[in-house]
Amino acid sequence: MPKVLIVAEHDGAKLNPSIAKCVACARGIAAAEITVVVCAADASAVASQAAQLAGVTRVLAIEHAAYTHQLSAVLAPQIVALAGPFTHVLGPSTTFGKDVMPRIAALLGTAQVSDIMAVESPTRFRRPIYAGNVILTVEVDADSKIVGTVRIASFEGVAGGGSAPIEKASLSAELPSHTRFISVSAAKSDRPDLQTAARVVSGGRALGSADAFKILYSLADKLGAAVGASRAAVDAGFAPNELQVGQTGKIIAPELYVAIGISGAIQHLTGIKDARTIVAINKDGEAPIFEVADIGLVGDLFQIVPELEKLL
C-alpha cells in the first residue's frame, strides 16, 4: 500500500494553503495512507489544522526551536530520518518546497519529480517542462522511493472537517548550524494571498511607474482581488518581487485573471495557463496576451481602469 509523507509548509501559526493541494495530489495515488509532518518550534496550531484536512491519516508533530525559520538544511535531515517506511515524500512546489525537497531527495539518494500536475499511477506522473510548453509523462523506477513537488495550481485543495490523530515524534536527526536566518521583509497586506486568490489583477511594464501601479491596488480592492505583476514590472521596480507571476514567479490558477498593460511573454503566460478566465487590457491589439485572453479590450489602460472601477 502506498504511504505518502507530506512535508507541511507553515509560518508557525498557519498551515500554508498549498498543503491542502498536496493532500489532494496524494489522494490521487490509489489507496494511499497520508501522513503530514509538521516541524515547528510550537507545532500545536499547525498540526491541528493539518489534522482537519480530508484524507489525512495522521499528523506527526516534531518540535524544536531550530525549526522557527524553516531552513531547508535544518529540516531535511529530520524528514530523511522519518522517510524510511514511506513510498512517497511530497511537498508543495512553492519556494519552500522547491528549496527543501531536492535536499531530501539527494539525502535519500533518489530522483525527484518536480511540479507534479497529475497522478496517472503511483509511479507515473505528468509535469510541465519548457515553461509549460510541453507536458511530460514520467515513470519512476518501481523500487525507488519517490520524492516530488506538487504544482499547486493543478489541484483543488481538499476540504476541512477531518480529525486525524496527531502524534508527537521526537527529533532524531543532528541539526546543522551552518545556516542562519537573518530576516524576512514581507509586505503586510489585507488583500487575498496571490497564490490562492480567486481573483487577481496584474500589471505590466505599461503602468510606467510604481506610483501609476497603485491604480491596480484600488481596482483590486473593488474586486476583492490579489495583485500580481509581470517580471518586467518587477524588474522596473513598479512592484515587489513577491507579486511576480510567471515561470520564475508564482504559478497561479484564479477564477479571474485581469492582465493590465501586460504584453504576454511566454514566461508570463506559463504562470496563468490554469486561470479560468483571462481578461486582457492592452493598447497594442497585437500583443500575445490576446492569444490566450477570454475577453480582450484594446485601449488606454489609464482611461479604462478608472472607468472600470466606477462601474464595479
Binding site: I135, T137, K273, F290, I304
Partner: peptide, 29 residues
Amino acid sequence: RLKLVRFEAPPQRQKGVRVKDAAELVDAL
C-alpha cells in the same frame, strides 16, 4: 530513475472575444 514516457503539447486555450470598452467588459464578466 525517471523514464520519459511521453512528450505532448499542452492543450490550447480557446480564442476569446473582444469588447470595445469598460462597460462591455463588465457585461461580459
